[in-house]
Amino acid sequence: MSTALARRDLLAALLAATALPGLAHAATPLLPDLDRAAAARIGKAWLAGRPDIGSAALARRLLPHGRGPDALPALRRQVSEDFRRGAVFVHRGWRLSETEGALFGLLALEE
């Protein structure tokens, strides 16, 4: 899988379980205006404390059942659990779940 394709799949996963089902299966990513450079900077900040982690391991951790429509509800559950167990990633004051940090990390690795 090419890096570009993998990244598009990740964005597709992020859009999969949305409030507009018609768009959920659209080919166009729902984060078309995501600033890739900004996301990569956040991802690199998350990766800075985890130099040994790779994209394949991250993808298995974040998206164990693939990048289909079921990915987003699972991510959402994981995010809630992260916040409740204190697994957080703070970026310039923004308090994000560890899962969100890892998502940015994966985006950075797949950039």
Partner: peptide, 9 residues
């Protein structure tokens, strides 16, 4: 970017 990803999640 933080907000976009959070909103989607």
């Amino acid at each position: 970017a933080v907000r976009q990803v959070a909103a989607r999640v």
